[in-house]
């Protein structure tokens, strides 16, 4: 019997006919999509995400757990200063765009306004980073917080704007040389980059929403391009206290 089937298969091959695909009589393509493929895709997506998280954690935990003193002191000081900047900028209030308050076609949110205004400092990133670095070196805890103050040890960077009263008193371990300075600035840069990415995301979303809702302008027979639309929205937001980052405003200038 089996031999007869094999022979029939050979005949079909010779004559060019394909053997009819055997299908499950109870499974249609829609059934296959809904019952099998979608759950499978979801499972795959979850697995992928879990793998990414695992990999990120692995990388994070790759370095030595115990940092050097100058490094600890640098991170402490920089984080303190940058946290303060984040608070001032109300950055932490907007983990996503949905937090922004709106009225009609334009935002109506003081904190978002503060963020946009404060974020203008990022237009000159090197200055901001330099300023943050110098501020971190010069940081002194407020009076009355003696316990906290004990954590801060004076650091000496011969190139910094603020210098200790007597640099010779500073231990060699806390003198910032080229390498240490580079590390410190890298640290600042990473965090500023994240800020910028977050602010840009918020502002692009704001631009999209404004552009979507603002009425069309009667250009009296002269139609403008996308750049002009962006400029118009940007001007409108700026006029209302929501200045956009230069990197947004100049998006099409760059491409031009």
């Amino acid at each position: 019997m089996k031999r007869r089937k094999d022979l029939a298969g050979l005949d079909h091959l010779i004559s060019g006919k394909k053997a009819k695909a055997r299908r499950s009589p109870n499974l249609s393509p829609n059934d296959a999509l809904v019952q099998v493929a979608l759950p499978l895709v979801l499972i795959l997506a979850i697995i992928t995400r879990l793998m990414v998280i695992e990999y990120t954690e692995a990388v994070r935990n790759k370095g030595p757990r115990i940092l050097e003193m100058w490094k600890q002191q640098l991170i402490l000081r920089i984080d303190t200063v940058m946290d303060a900047w984040e608070r001032d900028a109300e950055l932490s209030a907007f983990p996503d765009f949905q937090r922004v308050q709106w009225k009609g076609a334009l935002p109506n949110d003081q904190r978002f306004s503060t963020l946009c205004t404060k974020a203008q400092e990022m237009n000159d990133r090197s200055a901001l980073q330099d300023d943050l670095y110098n501020s971190a070196l010069a940081y002194e805890p407020p009076e009355g917080e003696e316990e906290t103050a004990l954590q801060f040890i004076t650091l000496y960077d011969p190139l910094a704007k603020a210098q200790p009263e007597d640099p010779s008193m500073v231990s060699e371990d806390f003198v910032i040389n080229e390498e240490r300075r580079s590390y410190a600035l890298g640290y600042v840069t990473d965090r500023v980059s994240k800020w910028k990415e977050q602010v840009e995301g918020l502002q692009w979303a704001a631009v999209a929403r404004c552009a979507d809702r603002l009425p069309l302008v009667d250009s009296a027979g002269k139609s403008d391009g996308v750049s002009a639309q962006l400029m118009r929205v940007s001007e409108e937001l700026k006029r209302r206290g929501y200045p956009l980052l230069n990197s947004l405003v100049e998006e099409y200038v760059k491409s031009d």
Binding site: A205, A208, L216, S223, E251
Partner: peptide, 24 residues
């Protein structure tokens, strides 16, 4: 959000152009 914003801006520019054509 950037791509979305660009799309909306483009739609807006195109709509203005179309409106101009209509009123012209």
């Amino acid at each position: 959000p950037k791509a979305g914003a660009k799309k909306i801006l483009t739609l807006r520019a195109a709509a203005e152009k179309a409106k101009t054509l209509l009123s012209n």
